[in-house]
Design a binder for these strands. Structure first.
Length: 611
RNA sequence: GGAGCGGUAGUUAAGUCGGUUAUAACGCCGGCCUGUCACGCCGGAGGCCGAGGGUUCGAGUCCCUUCCGCUCCGCCA
């Protein structure tokens, strides 16, 4: 059909758009206008034909009338969804009773006197409208059509505004935007690198940066004093709703600054973004919470402080309990849900399944009834223990308490995540609220079971807390870092630290991480050398732009705020990347594949070689 | 590496205990229609039930393998 209609397609010629499709109101009554856009809906009455024309700004109703402009009406019946149209006509008020209150432009319509078909369109694989619930595979395959939807356009435009606000704010505060290499050196710490083979240096590889960390520190050594960049970062790890292999950071670094100054700049930046983009005033400064307290009260290092349900440590209260699980556990915690006594067995079973994800064996619970504690475990608890638990949790009749006992990391993960799950399930989270929180005093290290060694909790360039230098070697688990995360609604949106600016300290850090001096020199020699050449004290922070915009747009995934995201398997359904390359390309790079793709079938077996 | 959910017409979904010609809505095509606005009315076309194998007289439905999408655990300095 659209092929037949091709013959109606004409050039733009000297037509110029006078207004957008979201712009015209009753105030433009009588004006001659020219609109251009896509056909959203057509309503062909045989006589009158209505077309809702869409551009990035909105919808405007066009009327093709055989009485007023027969020439314009003659062929208008060919118009179909997503045809590209230019219309010249006159703005007029809609007749009495025909006003559409749901449309910004609903008081008026354009009577078409002349129009040009600029292009036809095949029937799109899914309708271009916000209420369309096309599957994600379709949306990603036809991404440019998905991006035509107003919702996605609004997301990208809001993202742009956030970037813009950040740029202006940082510029106002004396930061210089500096670009850093995308082809850089692979470093062993942290996430997996994306590697790029070097044609001019066969057998050697660049890595795409996991972040510009080292370069921004070197810019401080270079005397830039205040640097920022809105920069792509790459990490070859498994994806999540809030994790893509390439993502964007608003990255900044400051010389001669301590935590207070970095956090102050970061708060100011957020305030500017919220004011410019959301029209909201943020209360500064943001509340702060040491990491220990966050773990104790919320079980996670990024607490969602929009609702209660805090965790309470009961370990000591049940230390000598007849309930062996509690008595012997390294950590026992409880979480009270006020009014939760009405929960059904089915609900509780679902919560039990939920916590098993985090390694919990089960989920103990007690319903506080008027006359008894109803619970599978109540009979194991002494009166004294009951009293202690009741006091610690301030129990009231009608509550339910969930318990978790065992390995501290499991207990915290299970209850901490159950807390968030319950917050959603019980609708305890107020809509349109933005709760910022700084989490401070992070551990310097965490123990990595796989490698049997301590690894940097933040990154290996993070300065230990004052007085914790000795602990780096003597008791690494106790050492604290000068690191801070900015948490928004339970989501980590930013993180940073005061860096090590002494070559000597940096050498000790690598030593503590198990590097030999030779390894440290080989991997990070250029950094250590720079620190030895007059590096100023410095620190900084990076925001996850995608996550921030995801929260500001209430999107369920960062894919909805990235123009061309990857699938969970890190592929692009639109371009079919990644894909194989020619043997010639490989040869130039000095590479040979150990396994030849295509030997096993890539998709559906349709084109697969049966050999 | 692991757990879970999903894949049926262009789209979104229904499809019972394995049993006739696989439904519906929207979209699409044709016709009618001068005030609709997700127009309406009449008619029509449209299916590799993700793919491969198995069980069975018979498979969209049961079993196995596999591919794809999503959520999560591990992983993500």
């Amino acid at each position: 059909m659209q092929r037949e209609h091709q013959k109606f397609v004409t050039e733009l010629g000297d037509w110029h758009r006078s207004h957008s499709c979201g712009q015209l109101t009753i105030n433009n009554d009588g004006e001659d206008v020219c609109l251009m856009g896509w056909v959203q809906y057509r309503r062909d009455h045989g006589g009158l034909i209505f077309v809702d024309l869409r551009d990035r700004d909105g919808l405007t109703q066009i009327v093709f009338s055989p009485d007023i402009a027969p020439a314009a009406h003659e062929n208008a019946h060919i118009l179909r969804s997503e045809y590209v149209l230019a219309v010249k006509g006159k703005v007029r008020p809609r007749p009495d009773g025909m006003i559409n209150a749901n449309m910004v432009t609903g008081q008026i319509e354009i009577v078409a006197y002349e129009w040009k078909l600029l292009n036809t369109s095949k029937t799109p694989p899914f309708p271009i409208e916000d209420r369309s619930d096309a599957g994600e595979n379709l949306r990603l395959t036809w991404r440019y059509l998905d991006l035509r939807r107003p919702r996605m356009q609004a997301n990208l435009r809001l993202r742009h505004k956030v970037s813009q606000a950040a740029r202006c704010y940082l510029d106002d505060n004396g930061f210089t935007e500096v670009e850093t290499p995308v082809l850089t050196k692979s470093t062993p710490e942290g996430a997996r690198d994306f590697l790029v083979p070097s044609r001019l240096n066969n057998g050697e590889f660049f890595a795409l940066p996991q972040s510009p960390q080292l370069f921004k520190q070197l810019l401080m050594v270079a005397g830039m004093e205040r640097y920022f960049q809105i920069v792509r970062c790459f990490r070859d790890e498994d994806l999540r709703a809030d994790r893509q292999p390439e993502f964007t950071q608003v990255d900044l670094e400051m010389s001669f600054a301590d935590e207070e100054q970095v956090m102050g700049i970061a708060e100011g930046l957020m305030a500017r973004v919220f004011k410019d983009v959301m029209g909201k005033e943020l209360a500064l400064p943001f509340p702060r919470m040491p990491w220990d307290e966050a773990m104790a009260r919320y079980g996670v290092d990024k607490p969602d402080t929009r609702f209660g349900l805090e965790l309470v440590d009961l370990t000591e209260i049940v230390r000598g309990s007849g309930f062996k699980l509690f008595a012997t556990a390294q950590l026992v915690k409880g979480m009270k849900v006020p009014g939760g006594e009405s929960m059904t067995r089915k609900e509780i079973d679902a919560f039990t399944e939920f916590v098993k994800i985090y390694g919990a064996q089960g989920l103990a619970w007690i319903k506080i009834k008027a006359d008894e504690w109803q619970s599978p475990i109540a009979k194991f608890l002494s009166d004294e223990e009951r009293k202690g638990i009741a006091e610690a949790l301030d129990l009231q009749i009608g509550d339910i308490v969930f318990f978790q006992a065992g390995e501290p990391s499991m207990v915290n993960a299970a209850l901490g995540n159950l807390r968030v799950h319950l917050g959603n399930h019980l609708k305890l989270i107020p809509e349109n609220s933005f709760n910022f929180l700084w989490v401070t005093d992070f551990p310097l290290y965490e123990y990595n079971e796989e490698d049997k060694r301590y690894v940097a909790c933040h990154h290996p360039f993070t300065s230990p807390a004052p007085g914790h230098m000795e602990l780096m070697v003597t008791d690494p688990a106790k050492a604290r870092a000068r690191a801070y995360d900015m948490v928004l609604n339970g989501c980590e949106v930013g993180g940073g630290s005061i860096r090590i600016h002494s070559g000597e300290v940096q050498r000790r850090m690598f030593e503590a991480l198990g590097f030999t001096p030779e390894q440290a020199e080989e991997q990070f020699g250029f950094l250590i050398q720079a620190l030895d050449l007059g590096a100023p004290p410095h620190g900084g922070l990076a925001f996850g732009l995608d996550r921030l915009v995801m929260l500001l747009t209430s999107s369920p995934s960062i894919r909805d705020v990235i123009a061309f995201p990857k699938t969970q398997k890190a592929t692009c359904l639109m371009t079919d990347a990644p894909s194989t390359v020619s043997s010639r390309q490989l040869r130039e790079l000095g590479l040979r594949l150990r396994e030849v793709p295509g030997a096993e079938q890539k998709k559906d077996g349709a084109a697969a070689d049966k050999a």
